[in-house]
């Protein structure tokens, strides 16, 4: 009962592994799959460094067991990068220097990706509220808000011009 075979689509690739029941999803991704882009900052669901996408929505990877991901689709920073899904966010974070040490960044980007997809008209205050569960000790958040706001703006303009965002 404490070892389970799971099948997960991780970053588009079907993965089969045997996992221990107590292993949380981030340890599975980091240790079993060497996807070290997701980070552990607290393991209590507070800091947001382990935020990833499961079945298309942002979740705390430390608050989900690997065994629960059986049958699910998991996208980590590595997959989101390779697919190009967050290329505009990554570019804006780079231009605004919306990261320093980079430890929170993969989780911040996962959260931001959901924000820009779901709240295309978010203002600065709404951006701050949405990322308020992702801790960043380095930036003071201002540049992260700038970066996300610029992506929202660019996507709005692209829509207004009739192009796909």
């Amino acid at each position: 009962m404490d070892q389970h075979d799971i099948s997960v689509i991780v970053n588009g690739q079907k993965i089969r592994r045997r996992v221990s029941a107590r292993q949380h999803l981030i340890d599975f991704l980091r240790n079993d799959l060497s996807l070290t882009g997701s980070h552990l900052g607290c393991e209590h669901g507070v800091c947001g460094a382990c935020t990833i996408q499961v079945d298309g929505v942002a979740v705390r990877g430390c608050l989900m067991l690997a065994v629960q991901a059986d049958g699910a689709t998991v996208d980590t920073i590595e997959g989101l990068t390779d697919s190009g899904a967050i290329a505009d966010l990554q570019d804006a974070f780079h231009r605004y220097n919306a990261l320093q040490c980079g430890f929170c960044t993969p989780g911040m980007l996962s959260t931001a990706a959901e924000l820009v997809a779901q709240h295309p008209d978010a203002d600065r205050e709404e951006i701050r509220a949405h990322i308020s569960g992702n801790y960043c000790r380095c930036t003071g958040y201002h540049s992260i808000v700038d970066a996300i706001a610029s992506v929202l703006d660019d996507r709005r303009k692209a829509r207004a011009n009739g192009g796909a965002a």
Partner: peptide, 17 residues
């Protein structure tokens, strides 16, 4: 822009853990 920031944006940094 910081040349070494791209790897961090892609989750490809190398932290001790």
């Amino acid at each position: 822009p910081r040349p070494n920031a791209k790897k961090l944006l892609q989750g490809r940094g190398t932290f001790v853990d």
